[in-house]
């Protein structure tokens, strides 16, 4: 039996639905010794911004029960650095390259970065990261004036964000942004959503209405961890993003909610570490999946998961991955 693993995300046709999550796979070259990169369905880059970013003050990560917190702060070489140093390497791998983009300067900067990527045909798609909890978001600054108790950490020389409101926490802001970017590019647009919301399906709908080709979810959940010995936060930025198996049930639930609300393909992610966790995401409605934190534990996790999906389909006599998508029996 031949199993069909190909899936479509907007204009993009993937040989298989196993991708990597932005920020957990660098620019792919870091992993070349550990797996045949050309077997991946697609590669999503670390999020880039128009200008280089040096990222947040360390310590930037810590381990938590079945997960980890990170506040990298989008350290990246900037668009030009990416195009010169990273894209040529990515291009050679021969699988679709999805470039994750964020902005430090509002909608205009998003549009500028995306427009510049238009010229590169090796950029297969763009993922709009409007859900990073680890940078100050200028787009939403009008939404949340700083009020209430002044945190004592504000006195320290650490980066403490005045504004942690994300674009993807507001349906209107999401709609506006995606709409503007949509006008600027014909490339496949994926909007990456935050789980730090009351109703994620509402945000997904805003992205769909604004012309996004797909949504990816979830980005990290905001969390915090304290070292009781030193009474200090384990991550310098105090609040950080939680990822790994700990967040999986939340992610699966959100994929299911979004699947019922919109028609766009969903790229599901959050705590996938093995075949069965990947399958949960397809059954909940994902067209493709992203492997994130698992890459740190086993750099070849994607390949084992891909193999596992193939065997599962074969064993259950399913000849097309499409038949699995949203197959949850309720």
């Amino acid at each position: 039996m031949i199993t069909n693993l190909t899936v479509n995300i907007g204009k993009l046709k993937l040989e298989n639905p196993v991708m990597v999550c932005s920020g957990t796979f660098g620019y792919a070259g870091e992993f070349k010794d550990f797996l045949p990169l050309k077997k991946l369905g697609a590669i999503v880059t670390k999020t880039i911004t128009l200008n280089p970013r040096q990222g947040n003050f360390p310590p930037r990560t810590c381990e938590t029960p079945a997960g980890m917190l990170n506040s990298i702060g989008l350290e990246n070489p900037g668009l030009a650095g990416f195009l010169n140093e990273k894209l040529p390497i990515l291009k050679k791998i021969g699988v679709p390259v999805i470039v994750s983009v964020a902005s430090e300067g509002g909608i205009a900067e998003f549009v500028k970065a995306v427009s510049e990527l238009n010229d590169f045909k090796e950029v297969a798609a763009i993922e709009l990261n409007i859900s990073c909890p680890n940078i100050e978001s200028p787009v939403t600054s009008h939404l949340s004036p700083v009020t209430g108790r002044q945190s004592p950490v504000a006195c320290r020389r650490l980066p403490v964000f005045k504004n942690r409101r994300l674009i993807s926490q507001d349906p209107q802001a999401t709609y506006q942004l995606v709409k503007q970017v949509r006008k600027a590019t014909k490339k496949t647009l994926i909007t990456k959503l935050s789980p730090n919301v009351t109703d994620i399906s509402e945000i997904a709908l805003a992205a769909e209405n604004a012309g996004s080709d797909a949504v990816s979810l979830i980005n990290t959940l905001m969390g915090m961890s304290i070292d009781t010995k030193t009474m200090k936060p384990k991550v310098a930025a105090v609040i950080a993003g939680l990822s790994g198996p700990a967040i999986r049930p939340v992610a699966v639930r959100m994929v299911w909610e979004v699947y019922q609300k919109i028609k766009l393909p969903i790229i599901g992610m959050g705590g996938i570490i093995d075949t069965s966790s990947a399958l949960e995401f397809f059954l909940a409605g994902s067209t493709a999946i992203g492997v994130g934190t698992a890459n740190f534990i086993d750099p070849a996790a994607t390949i084992s998961i891909l193999q596992g999906i193939k065997s599962y389909l074969r064993k259950n006599r399913i000849n097309n991955i499409a038949k699995l998508i949203g197959g949850l029996k309720v």
């Binding site: 957990t24 870091e30 670390k46 990222g55 360390p58 930037r60 990560t61 990170n70 740190f296």
Partner: peptide, 17 residues
């Protein structure tokens, strides 16, 4: 030394100024 997540240069976690 610093807390590491990937150990292979991908996650940008273990930096020093």
């Amino acid at each position: 030394e610093e807390h590491m997540s990937c150990g292979i240069g991908a996650c940008m976690g273990c930096v020093v100024q």
